[in-house]
Design a protein around this nucleic acid. Structure first.
Lengths: 242, 242
DNA sequence: TCGTCAGACTGGTCTATACCAGATCAGCGA
DNA sequence: TCGCTGATCTGGTATAGACCAGTCTGACGA
C-alpha cells in the first residue's frame, strides 16, 4: 500500500509520522492543549494503520510533546512548569507566577499510624500517629499530580480539621507558625500505576516522576513527609546551590 | 483462544502478564540483568500474541523494572544508582562506592565556538572558544548515560590534550587546581532521541532523564557546562539542603 | 587452533482487522 | 427548559499474521 519515500528507506515509518507531527508542533501549527486529529484520521493521512500511528503518538508522548485524555483524544502538551523543590513550598504561588491557573482538590484525609516504611522516611516510630492527606493538583484544568502528605499531629494538633484545598504551606505558617525548612528530596522517573494513575485520570503506565520531600521546622522537628506523583511532561526541575 | 480467568474480567490481559512478570522479579525468581524469555515464548506461555506481550514488556520498561538490549532480549533492571547532583562530582567514585563497576569512554573532543544556546547557559559570549567533549558512561558494563561537556579553555588552557577516560573532576583539580562549586542544575524526564539514543545503543524513544549542570570554580569563573542524558531506570536523584 | 560464515534466534517494524468502553452531542420527550 | 437516550465519535485492547535487521552460535574449513 504505502509507497516508500525515496531517500528515507532506513527511517521507520512511525518515526516519519512522528517527525511530521513534531514539526507542526514546533512551528506552532498545533498549539498547546490543541486536540490532534483522531488516530484513524492520522492513519489515513499518512497511509498507514492505527497500530503504526499509535507508535508515533507514543513516541511523542514519551518525549513530553503530547498527552492523552482518556478516550477523548491526544493533545499538545503545554510548557513544563518550572519547579524548584528546594525553594518552592507553594504550588499555587509557583503556578500563578508562571502565568498559569492552579487548582487543588482534597481526595481524603485519614488519621492513621506510622508503618515501617514511613518510620524510615520520617524518623518517627512505628505506631506513632500521623495524618494522611491525599490531594490532586491541576494546572490550567489539567491534573498533573497527586500527592500523599503525611503530617505530624504532634507538631500540628487539630490539623485534620482544616480545609486543604488551599496552600498547605500558608496554613502551616499562619495557624502553627511553622517555617518549613526543606531537607531531603528524592526523585526518579517511573511509570504511574494505580491507584495514582487512576486518580490523575491517565492510563496505568503513563510516564511520571516520583518525588518525595521530607520537611522540618526551624527547630528541626519533623513536620511533613510529601510524596508526589507527577506527569512526566508537566515539570522541569531546577536546583540551585551555593 | 485465550480463556479468560474468572474474576479478572476487567483487568486487561497485558496487565495480567505484566503482573506475573513483576511478581517473578519481586520474588527474586528473576534477578538483575537476567534475560527474560523471548517475546515469542512469553506470548506462547500466556496464550496471547507478541503485540500484547510487548505491551506488558513496555509497561514494565516504563516502570524501570526491565530494560532491553537491541535484538538481544529483555533484561531485569539492576537497582538505581543514587546520584546527588549537588554533591557528586566523580561518577566513578559514586558508582564504586555503591559496589558497582564504572567505565567511561570518550566519544570525541572538539574545539568549537559558543552558540546562542550555550551563551545563555554559560554566560559566555557567542563566538567564544569552547571545548566540546562527548563521553559515554557505563555501570557494570551497561551504558547508562551519554554526556556533552563544554569546557572553558580560558580557565583550562590545553584541556583538549588530556585523557578523558577518567574522572574529569580529578583532572580539573590536579592539573588546574579547580575546586568545582555547583551551581544551577536543571532536569526533566523525556525520551532519548538520536543521536543520544544511538550513542547509548537503545531505541529512539526510550525513556530518559535529561540533566544539565553549570559549574564554576571557587572564584566564580565559569569552568564547565554539563549536559547528561540518562536512561530513566538507571538513577535515583537525591538533593539535600540545609 | 582459530577465524569465518551460514543459519537460527532475537527484537523491530508493519499490515489488516475486530470488538469494547468511555466521552460527546444532537435531538427527543416530559 | 431540562433531563434522558441513543448514535457516533474517541482511544483501549486484542488477534494473526509477515518480513526485516542485528546477534549469537556452532560447524566447518584453512
Amino acid at each position: 500500500m504505502q509507497e516508500r519515500l525515496v531517500g528515507e528507506g532506513t527511517v521507520p515509518l512511525y518515526m516519519r509520522v512522528r517527525d511530521q507531527l513534531a514539526i507542526q508542533i514546533e512551528e506552532g501549527a498545533l498549539t498547546p492543549n490543541t486536540r490532534l486529529p483522531s488516530e484513524r484520521i492520522l492513519a489515513d493521512e499518512y497511509g498507514t494503520t492505527r497500530v503504526t500511528t499509535r507508535l508515533a503518538l507514543a513516541q511523542l508522548e514519551a518525549e513530553g510533546r503530547i498527552y492523552r485524555s482518556n478516550r477523548r483524544g491526544w493533545f499538545v502538551s503545554p510548557p513544563r512548569l518550572i519547579y524548584k523543590p528546594t525553594q518552592d513550598y507553594s504550588f499555587s504561588d509557583n503556578v500563578t507566577s508562571q502565568g498559569r491557573v492552579p487548582a487543588t482538590e482534597t481526595l481524603d484525609v485519614t488519621p492513621t499510624e506510622i508503618n515501617a516504611w514511613l518510620a524510615v522516611k520520617t524518623g518517627l516510630a512505628v505506631g506513632d500517629p500521623i495524618v494522611w492527606l491525599r490531594r490532586r493538583r491541576q494546572i490550567d484544568g489539567r491534573s498533573v499530580l497527586v500527592e500523599n502528605i503525611y503530617l505530624n499531629p504532634k507538631r500540628l494538633p487539630g490539623i485534620e480539621t482544616y480545609d486543604f484545598n488551599r496552600s498547605l504551606w500558608k496554613l502551616l505558617r499562619e495557624q502553627y507558625g511553622v517555617e518549613l525548612q526543606g531537607k531531603r528530596i528524592e526523585m526518579y522517573p517511573t511509570a504511574l500505576v494505580d491507584p495514582q494513575a487512576n486518580a490523575i485520570g491517565v492510563t496505568a503506565g503513563t510516564a511520571g516522576l516520583y518525588v518525595t520531600r521530607c520537611s522540618h521546622d526551624a527547630e528541626g522537628c519533623f513536620v511533613e513527609f510529601d510524596e508526589e506523583f507527577w506527569l512526566h511532561d508537566a515539570l522541569s526541575i531546577q536546583v540551585e546551590v551555593n
